[in-house]
Structure formats: structure tokens, C-alpha cells
Amino acid sequence: MDPTDPVAVLAGLIRCPSVTPREGGALGLLEALLAREGFAVSRPVFEEEGTDPVENLFARLGDAGPHLVFAGHTDVVPPGSLDDWSVDPFAGQIVDGEMVGRGAADMKGGIAAFLAASARHARRNGASMGQLSFLITGDEEGPAVNGTVKLLEWAAERGERFDACLVGEPTNPNALGDMIKIGRRGSLSGEIRITGRQGHVAYPHLADNPVPVAVEIAGELLATPLDQGTDAFQPSNLEITAIDTGNGAVNVIPSRCSILFNVRFNDLWSIEALQDEIAERVARGAAGERLRPGRALPDYEIIWRERPSEAFSTVSDALTGELVGAILETTGRRPELSTSGGTSDARFIKDYCPVIEFGLVGKTMHMSNERVALSDLEGLTKIYEAFIARWFAANA
């Protein structure tokens, strides 16, 4: 397999069924291709109690000078029903000028393009440009416990220092060159557990229904916008994702009710300040008497889910400017600099170096018949190669 050919590399990666948390052969393939290009490759495995062990990859070319790292993941989400696919999701088939397969867009295509770009650049310019690394996990689509977080710690303990990072997530909404992600909103999840007393619906005075309390709390959570957004970020939004009693009987008042929620928030909030705001809203809702007049205050608790992430944005002309220049040079488009969308492993990398994200068009990611146009795959490879050259020239 020619490492400079992103189509061949992507087909090989898709044929590795690396559904989280299985490695599926994808990291093994990358290791072989990178080693052939002179990269020193390590394959650390991380695990902790209650989680699956996860294989990861770190590869570096060069021993001194400015250090650019490309980050991404080879793990993919399950394909779902095979009846919804027109081809085998792990066959890496080309249909009408597009590579179809799970992970084609998210994000084996980005990895294939950066590998091809790195190989092309090194063959044309030699390996004396500085240090170029790959930081690849198999745990991005999973719980993100044994992947990028631990891989960054492992690298730092070994003396690796990064000057800039590009994450190859699919960032473009419609066409290659549309959008660079220069940051991400924060994410905070939680559960509100309300305790009542079970009883018969015909005798409500003998019971204590937690559902009216949940309705009041939900109303308070949603009644007032958290903010109006900032110049760099869209408004924060709180979404209630479930209200559940675990009760399937229509003639039984439940003894409990839970509200699940997630907040995607901008840089007006810290995690602690947002937790305080939500706690105040929950308290107001729980104290409301409109749906339960004369009742004592209900018992409730808020359980914050693990691994909340802060909002962040990257201000680095040396990084963003060179990528914008490479996109303009290759496509003629000037990309939007955005912080929209969900979250990514860039939230961990920001603590080590400036980080931005740019990859393929993401229209079909996680869908049946996930696919990427071969022209976009080659186009992204050219953008990455131009970016590598520009970044090392600017940081020489």
C-alpha cells in the first residue's frame, strides 16, 4: 500500500472493523505505514477499573525543532442495521466516485489524508523540517477515558512537547474549505432525582407524586435563556433529554422521578458557575407550589455526570492563519472560523498546546452509507500538505 495515496489508505482503514473499543487492525495498519516512512511508533494501551482496555498510537518523525502534532481517532460507531447500507460498511468500496464505509468521514478519511500529506511532504522536502507526530486514539467515540487524555499524559511524561495541534475531525458542513473549528463549547451533564411516595391514583393524599415537582423544575430550567452568546460563541443551551419515573402502570403514583439534562455552554460560564445557576433554578422549581399546594418541600438531589468540559477557543495566528492560507491556496475558499457543534478530543489537547480542527465534509458521519468523495479526499490531502509546509516555514 502506498502511504502517499489517501484512497488506498482509507480503504485499508475502513476494512479494519474498529468499532469502539476494538482496535480492529486499524492502528496496526497505521503503525506499519508510518514506520515505513521513518516514524518512531509506540502503541500504549490504557485501562482502568470498570472500563475496556484501549489501544492507542503515538508516532513521531524528527528529533528537534518545532513540533506539529496531528490528532484523531480510528474507532468508529457501530454500523447499525446492515439492511440500511447499500454496501458492506467495512468493505471500503467505491461507488460513483465516493468511498463508502463506516468511518469514511469520521474520521478515517482525515487520518488517511494527513498520512498521505505527511509522506508527500517528507519525500519532497526531507525530514529535517522539525518534528511531526500522530496522536491517535481508539476511544473517541466511546467514553473517552482510556484514549486521548491518558495518551497526552503518557507523552508528556516522556518529554514530548507540542507547539501546535491539528485535529482531523470532519468540520465542513457543505463543501471542503467551509469551516475551521477554533474552539468548542463546554459540556455539562447531570441528573435530578426527585423522591416521592408511591400510592394509588385514587388516593393521592396518601401519596406524594414527584412528577409535578419535575414539571416545575423543568419549567424553571428552560424558562430563561442562559445567555445571548458572544462574538466567538453561539448562545448556551440547556436540553432536557429524559424525564423518567420507571413506572409503567397508569393507576400507580410513582415514588421517584429523574430528569436528565445536558448543557452546551460558551465562555461566559465556568463549570462551577453553571452548576450554581442550575442548582438555583432547580431550587426555585422545587419550591414552587402551583402544582402541589400545601405540600412540604420535596426531597431531591442533583448528580453531576463525570468529565464535564470547559468552553475554549484558540487564538493563534501562527496556527489558524497558516491553515486558512493553505485552504485558500488549494480551494479558493476562505473558511469560517467557528466554535459551533458538539465536542471533540480537542478539549483535552488545549491544555497542552494551541489546537484547531479541520477535516472532511461531515454530512454523512454516523449515518448509514457514510461516505466521502474521492475528490474531497485528494483535496484535503493537498490542503494538509500545504499547511504542513506553511506551518514549518513560519515556525522555522
Rank of each mutant, 00 (worst) to 15 (best):
P44K: 13
G332S: 06
E220T: 04
A207W: 10
L30W: 05
E98C: 14
P204M: 05
N237P: 09
S258T: 12
G130Y: 07
L268S: 04
I192D: 04
D267T: 06
L226M: 12
H366G: 00
L166S: 09
G285I: 13
G110T: 11
D83P: 02
G248L: 11
Q131F: 10
Y203P: 02
P66D: 01
D227T: 04
H73T: 05
G177E: 07
E23I: 12
K181D: 00
P173G: 07
P143W: 06
A105F: 02
A214C: 05
I182F: 01
A117G: 10
V211E: 03
R102A: 07
A283H: 14
N369F: 05
L222S: 08
E277A: 14
P254M: 00
L151P: 08
R256I: 09
E153Y: 13
A311P: 04
D231Y: 09
S309T: 14
A207Y: 08
S375F: 13
S340H: 12
D139H: 02
E49Q: 14
S18E: 03
L380P: 05
N172T: 08
P66I: 00
I243A: 10
E31A: 15
A156I: 03
K363A: 15
A119R: 09
R305M: 15
Q198P: 06
D376Y: 01
R197Y: 08
T74F: 06
E385I: 03
S128H: 15
G341F: 02
M365C: 11
T171W: 01
K150F: 06
R256T: 14
I192P: 05
P298S: 08
E55W: 10
R292C: 13
I240C: 02
Y203D: 13
A214T: 04
D317R: 01
L29H: 05
E47Q: 15
G142D: 02
N237V: 15
I383Q: 06
R120P: 03
I94S: 09
E306Y: 13
N251D: 14
F70R: 03
A214E: 03
I180A: 03
P44V: 11
N395E: 05
R334D: 12
V213G: 04
W269A: 01
A394L: 04
R15D: 07
R193Y: 10
P44H: 13
L135E: 00
T381G: 11
E37R: 15
P293Q: 01
L10M: 09
N56Q: 12
H121K: 14
G359K: 09
D83T: 11
G288P: 09
R43D: 00
G65R: 07
I94L: 10
V145T: 06
V76F: 02
L377K: 03
T51Y: 13
S340R: 12
M129E: 06
T224H: 09
G130K: 02
T339V: 05
R185Y: 09
S81P: 08
I14R: 00
G177D: 08
I259Q: 03
V41Q: 08
L152P: 05
G199M: 11
E98Q: 08
A116V: 14
I243W: 11
D83G: 12
G25D: 07
I136Q: 06
H121F: 15
V355K: 02
V9A: 07
G25I: 04
W391Y: 06
